[in-house]
Write a protein that binds this DNA or RNA. Structure first.
Length: 272
DNA sequence: CAACCGCCCTGGGAGC
DNA sequence: TGCTCCCAGGGCGGTT
């Protein structure tokens, strides 16, 4: 389940592999993932990729016609750049043949991913970025910002942190880990966050995300690097997926709760 | 309009 | 062994 550190890991491998390449041919093996794939056949052949960047959980490859190839990896998206000799895997839906003889391949078992050409504005952003809040590793995500932004919000703090309009790229894994490290209950109403709690959330989100990027992301089941290897951060997870186990800090049993259909794990003793 | 809910999709694990 | 059921969950569209 790629969140920010996983997508950043993908970007670091993908940018050098795609930048400057011309897309010669498109081959499709499914009609759609989250969006129809057929338009790619008209939009991509002949286009050169000028730059590749990440925002939130998206990667955008800027094309030479003012449009961008927008990618989102959903739950199970895996991309590779490799030889056309490698046999197609069961859930590979798109091959983009590049001018250096290699093939960009998009695999996604659950087809929750997006691969779509969209227009870019003057900042090279596709329309979906306009509603986004700050990146968690940039200055805009400050304790002051989080405190101000949470005033009057009736939502619980965990879905609030997972809202891309508040801060981008934080999903279930890193929201869970951040709130545990910040000693804030995921069930707490966002409007009731104190300034010190906001500071702890910002500091710990940064620390956890930075460390996960350093470890090449978290592989639970599906996430793979562009070269097929696994991320190593899973060993650092303190409580994600460990409901019923003892809290690593106080030893009381970790509890599970449902928030918006997502499982939340927390320590009722440490997190208030 | 904020908040919430259901849907998209398939593999893997639990339970019988 | 093999069947069924449930869960994983980001983003988005629909509803309250």
């Amino acid at each position: 389940m790629p969140e920010l550190p996983e997508v950043e890991t993908i970007l670091r491998a993908l940018a050098p592999a795609l930048t400057g390449r011309r897309i010669e041919r498109v081959e499709l093996f499914s009609p759609k993932m989250r969006t129809p794939l057929a338009p790619l056949r008209e939009e991509l052949p002949g286009r050169t990729i000028l730059a590749v960047r990440r925002r939130a959980r998206y990667i955008v490859a800027k094309l030479d016609n003012g449009h961008g190839l927008v990618m989102h990896f959903g739950m199970t998206g895996v991309v590779r750049v490799e030889s056309p000799e490698v046999p197609r895997r069961k859930h590979e839906h798109v091959f983009l043949y590049l001018d250096n003889g290699l093939v960009f391949r998009f695999e996604c078992a659950r087809r929750f991913s997006v691969l779509e050409v969209q227009p870019l504005n003057a900042n090279d952003d596709p329309p979906v970025f306009l509603s986004f809040g700050p990146e968690p590793l940039e200055d805009g995500f400050s304790p002051d910002y989080l405190y101000t932004r949470s005033r009057g919000v009736k939502q619980a703090v965990k879905p609030f942190l997972m809202d891309n309009g508040v801060v981008t790229g934080i999903g279930n894994i890193y929201a869970t880990e951040t709130l545990f490290a910040a000693r804030v209950s995921p069930l707490k109403q966002a409007s009731r966050l104190t300034r010190p709690a906001c500071r702890r959330i910002v500091e710990n989100a940064r620390r956890v995300l930075q460390e996960a990027i350093r470890q090449g992301g978290t592989t639970i089941a599906d996430f793979r690097h562009v070269d097929g290897t696994e991320g190593q951060f899973a060993v650092n997870l303190q409580i994600y997926g460990k409901a019923g186990c003892p809290c690593p800090v106080c030893g009381n049993l970790l509890k599970a709760a449902k928030q918006g259909g997502r499982t939340t794990v927390y320590c009722p003793h440490c997190q208030r």
